[in-house]
């Protein structure tokens, strides 16, 4: 049943991105930056976990989840290690995703060629 929530909230978050595109014609880089910052803010104000509890993948799969993990990692590490945690925590928490993106992009970049869409 929670798949319905995942679908509805995930779809809604993505639709917000589309609203931004229509309203201001912004590029995908700006959209991604905006949503990452939204994620950081949600986590900083402690709201992300409430949403995540029932939205699950609906909020974690959108790039908002990436921003939230960054902030969550930083906050957790600050509590455990002090100031140094602010610098190490964020990337530590998201290292898997970032490294995966680089590795796969590197491999597929070598294998495939770009094609013109018609």
């Amino acid at each position: 049943m929670y798949y319905l929530w995942v679908f509805l909230i995930g779809g809604f978050v993505c639709m917000l991105g589309q609203v931004l595109i229509i309203k201001s014609n912004i590029t995908s880089a700006r959209i991604l930056v905006t949503f990452v910052l939204v994620g950081v803010a949600l986590e900083a104000f402690g709201l992300f976990d409430y949403i995540s509890e029932f939205a699950r993948a609906g909020i974690n799969v959108p790039i908002v989840g990436f921003g939230a993990s960054l902030a969550k990692g930083a906050i957790g590490a600050v509590r455990a290690k002090g100031l140094i945690g602010a610098f190490t925590g964020g990337l530590e928490a998201t290292a898997g995703g970032i490294a995966a993106a680089f590795v796969f992009a590197f491999i597929f970049g070598l294998i495939f060629k770009s094609k013109t869409i018609n």
């Binding site: 991105g17 589309q18 799969v61 680089f102 060629k113 094609k115």
Partner: peptide, 30 residues
């Protein structure tokens, strides 16, 4: 060469998820 076709009609639907982030790294790479 499939993701850009999805993006053509999905717009924000395929940009905002983490998959859009992956697409934005792989596409300039190739």
């Amino acid at each position: 060469g499939v993701y850009d076709k999805i993006g053509k009609f999905a717009g924000g639907g395929s940009i905002v998820p983490i998959t859009g982030f992956s697409n934005s790294i792989t596409s300039p790479a190739l």
